[in-house]
Write a protein that binds this DNA or RNA. Structure first.
Lengths: 183, 183
DNA sequence: ATGTACCTACCAAGTAGTAGATAGACAAAT
DNA sequence: ATTTGTCTATCTACTACTTGGTAGGTACAT
């Protein structure tokens, strides 16, 4: 893997572990065994690095959506939910939740890309739900976009909250979501 | 108001606006027109200040619970939800959400108090829901504690997310919660 | 010889936190 | 009634450290 990719990977992990304002270029250089100036060579500013991380997510999400596009809604929603299961296993929170918390401290340019990421996720989940409803495998009493908002907020905050309540609560929330939409 | 109380108030606002790691003692001293050493006089360390903010919430919550204890479940859940409505109006996020995001960077002592706050909120909402269910005004198909988790995660994350989607989405989420539990 | 990816060595700014002085309020001792 | 001592809340002035970021050099592959 290229140094550039490794920097993005480590930055992503650090953002989701400590937050955007709590990691430094030194943290990354230390993890990679290079000097902080070398990190700046690949990403001149912290904002540049943040944008690269978000863009990586945009690309990965695009890929995920394409890969699961012709699958059943039930499986597609599981693909979505499983993202959080892996994140939970890491003991970290999700990128959107982390950056959304630090929103007022990040560069407006980064905000634009983050907004795109949120839109893309929201549209994806909305599509899955609408598809499931149309095929008669899902049932819910609000418009798909609203149901998507409910599910996304459940998952996003469950990662943050269940580090403070029962660790088992994450799985409870996830199963409740599945049961709730399944006809 | 005493300087001590004012420091706590400003710290709370800053934590919910920028995050625990993005505000400084200087920010507070500037806002109050005093020197940073004077802030340290009242709160020797940032950890002390963070704990004072969380304790302030514990006390306020206690008061709120007592004040609404003999009211109808419908009104009590509205009291709970209205906390987030005010926070949304401020353009800030909730304290729990902010500190939960920065969890790995704060002192273990602060974590303990934060855990107490989350427990208290979770128990409060669980009680309201169980009471409403017993009185036949609420209906839901999971145990009250799980439903409380769903609602709390919805509200917590809605503050974070709706700064990136539609501003109107916050109200949509709130109304969906009310409609969902009302029999 | 040109570009890539790293290095050494630095800087200015901001951070949490400390030492020690000062000024006023209040109470006890003279 | 005045002095003395103590407490509170502030100040000036500082320290040690970390931060994001830069200038300029080097090794190496194409």
């Amino acid at each position: 893997m290229s140094t550039r990719s490794e920097i993005i990977k480590i930055a992503d992990e650090l953002i989701r572990e400590k937050g955007f304002n709590a990691f430094s270029f030194y943290d990354i250089s230390k993890a990679l065994g290079i000097k902080n100036a070398s990190v700046h060579y690949h990403f001149p500013t912290k904002n540049d690095l943040g944008i690269a991380v978000v863009n990586e997510y945009l690309a990965k999400l695009e890929e995920m959506m394409a890969d699961s596009a012709d699958k059943e809604p039930t499986e597609r929603i599981n693909v979505y939910l499983s993202i959080y299961t892996s994140t939970k296993a890491e003991g970290r929170i999700c990128l959107v939740g982390s950056l959304a918390s630090d929103l007022q401290t990040v560069d407006p340019e980064l905000k634009v890309y983050l907004k795109q990421l949120v839109d893309k996720i929201l549209n994806w989940v909305t599509d899955i739900l609408a598809d499931g409803q149309a095929r008669g495998v899902f049932a819910f009493s609000v418009v798909p976009r609203t149901k998507a908002l409910m599910i996304i907020t459940n998952m996003l905050a469950s990662l943050q909250l269940t580090r403070l309540t029962d660790e088992q609560d994450f799985e409870t929330i996830k199963q409740t979501i599945i049961k709730d939409i399944t006809k």
